[in-house]
Simulated scan of single mutants.
Amino acid sequence: MDTSLKFLYLNEEDMINAGVKNMDKCILTMEDMFMLLHKEDYRMGGENANEHGIRVSFPKESDVEGMPIHKPDYRFMAMPAYLGGRFKMFGIKSYGSNPDNAQKGLPRSILMMSLMDATTGAPLAYMSANILSAMRTGATSGVGAKHLSVKNPKVVSIIGPGTMSKYTLYSFITAQPSIEVVRIKGRSKRGIDNFISYCKKNFPTIKEYIVCNDVQEVCKDADIVFYGTTNAAKYEENPTVKKEWLKKGALVIAASALLVDTEFLSDKDVKLISDNYKMYDGWGSGQPLPTQKNVSTLLGMGFYDAVTEGKIPREAITDMGEILTGEKSGRDSEEQIILYAVGGMPIEDVAWGYDCYMNAINNNIGTELKVWDKTEL
């Protein structure tokens, strides 16, 4: 009996060669993931199996020499998950995030993904995951653009033109090729210029870029509005959106901080869609309200607060998996405003990581590394 153990290492170049940047396929993979999520053929961390991940927190001050000190977007996390269906795979995405990384020529977050046999726990692959993570985040929003936007959308608004927004715009254009105008609100001219330069190089079908001075202005005339900002230093400084800023039929997608008042959420002309409401419900359980301020600034936590405070019924929120399985409708009219909350889940990483891994296996990509020929234990 061969008891040797090996796994496949995929560096960033390997991942690109294995198709990690294929947005068409990534969107389809995220659809598969959402349907398995709805069928409950998955597990994430925590007793409720819906945890985003496990975070190592640092103190705001410390007498311990060398102890890292808390600041926005400085975090280290492990994100474990199992996904069934055609995947039947366990995985862990790990990452460290430090906003000061840019001073060292590094991305703010550096991510790696491990895949393991869900029966034995044996390692199968260890892969560079920065692009993988950006792709699955973009594709999750792209599923929304595909199923929730008005017919033939033309104008997209981007609030926070960073890396996440680049890949999200990629998903929007893939899902809705009719898009031709991009409106932008950013915090710095350098960031905006970098975003436009990147998009002109990679998305030649875009005809016009419009830089706006404030969030209200950028939302104007947009068919799809995407919020992709990092957390503000003060809670009150995080972005918001109001119904009167939006055109009829607008789709608002938030994959980061977005504060929305309950009057907007309870408006009969507004539909609320979540990637996975159970995740926000699990985060909020036992926590002081409002959880958007005390737990997470994600839009999904705003949904949870409105439900918990009795402002809207739980039934007012539709999960994406319910739409994809045909159990509930997506857009009900071309004039309906839709808010789609995206929080990020490790089952997304397992799904896209698995498909990239299989492409690598089938095309002889990557480096095989040995764990042991025969274990000493």
Rank of each mutant, 00 (worst) to 15 (best):
P80T: 05
A233L: 12
D332A: 12
T174K: 12
E31V: 00
L369W: 11
V371D: 02
V143F: 02
E368I: 11
N130A: 09
V64I: 15
V56T: 08
D267K: 08
A316D: 15
G321R: 03
E237F: 03
P290V: 07
M113K: 03
S171A: 15
G321L: 04
A316K: 15
I54L: 15
P239Y: 06
Q292V: 14
Y235L: 06
G284L: 08
I338S: 07
S171M: 05
N50F: 10
V150K: 14
I131D: 10
W245R: 07
T240C: 08
Y277M: 15
G186V: 11
A125W: 00
K166M: 14
D275S: 13
L169K: 08
T3A: 07
S133G: 14
L10W: 02
K146N: 05
G343Q: 12
N22H: 07
Q103T: 13
D73H: 14
A250M: 06
F226E: 10
K234S: 13
V56G: 02
K242Y: 12
A222W: 10
N238G: 14
Y235D: 08
T308K: 14
F58N: 04
G105I: 05
A125M: 05
P239S: 05
K71N: 00
L132T: 10
E335R: 11
S188P: 11
P107G: 04
S165N: 12
I184M: 08
S157G: 10
E31R: 00
G46W: 13
V225M: 09
T168V: 10
V181W: 08
V218R: 07
P59W: 02
L5P: 01
Y209G: 10
D223M: 08
V225T: 11
E237V: 00
G46C: 12
L251A: 04
D319H: 09
S114G: 14
E40L: 07
T137L: 14
I273P: 06
T29G: 00
K242L: 13
W352I: 01
I131T: 15
L28K: 05
E13T: 12
S171L: 02
